[in-house]
Amino acid sequence: MSDVNVAASVAVSSPVSDLVNSSAGIGSGSWVAARVSDENVAGGWLVIEDEQTGAERWCAVISADPVSVVAAAPVSQVELSAWSVPDGSMPSWVALLAAAQWDTARARSGAEQARRALDEHRNRLEAIVDAAHQYADDNDLCSRFDDFMFEQGLRARSRDYAVSVDVRLRVSVTESGHDADSASQNVDRNAVAEAIYNLSRYELRDMFDDFDVVDVERI
């Protein structure tokens, strides 16, 4: 069955939760038209989950040709615009596909909830660490505070330091002379400085592979 042969229809879609306990006779095995957008509906078998203790039941609409999941969500979120009782019984694979879809959706929802809870925990921990840093600064706590934070796997305070480094560069300087030796002798500090000054940031970055730290001083 690929088309919806409706015996009842409504101008405004209604959620499955309102229809399942009404006189409409809606239940698992009904052939329904589920609203998938403001303008479109799709037909399929309706499968409603058994009663869940303390939780809202889910439902699914599974099309037969081609086989696909039209909708799968709590009964309050799936809206139907038409329904009928089919001529034959619903195939057994429909309920299995619906159950698999519910399990997958719930697993994704659980993972998303766990991710949000972890993000909230991390944000709260970061706020506590920031407050601890501010308290340490306001009360002139020594480096033992930072040692403690580090030992507990927490972020220690960050300070600014002036780090002196030695870098060796090789640049090309254009200079005149009657031979190579005289041209080399004519190179002065100004020519070298001008050659370095004319380098772009990216050229300068790529001109050295290493550097040596020679001094570190807290600012």
Rank of each mutant, 00 (worst) to 15 (best):
R108W: 08
S184P: 04
M207A: 14
N123E: 13
R106G: 11
D119F: 10
T104S: 14
S23K: 08
V47N: 10
L125D: 13
S9C: 04
C59H: 14
S81W: 07
N186F: 04
Q101T: 15
H133N: 02
R218F: 05
A33E: 09
G29F: 03
V70C: 01
D140Y: 08
A24M: 02
L96G: 13
G177E: 02
S172G: 05
A42S: 08
P74S: 02
A98N: 08
F148R: 06
A73D: 15
R189S: 14
E175W: 01
V36M: 03
S89I: 04
G110F: 11
A191V: 11
T174D: 14
V213S: 07
H121N: 13
A34E: 06
V4I: 15
M90W: 12
R116C: 09
D3M: 02
S143Y: 06
R115V: 10
E79L: 13
V75Y: 00
S176W: 08
S37Y: 00
E112K: 14
S28C: 08
S92Q: 00
W58H: 14
V214F: 01
A82C: 05
S17G: 07
V47R: 11
S84P: 04
R116K: 14
I219F: 06
A156V: 06
N190S: 13
R155N: 09
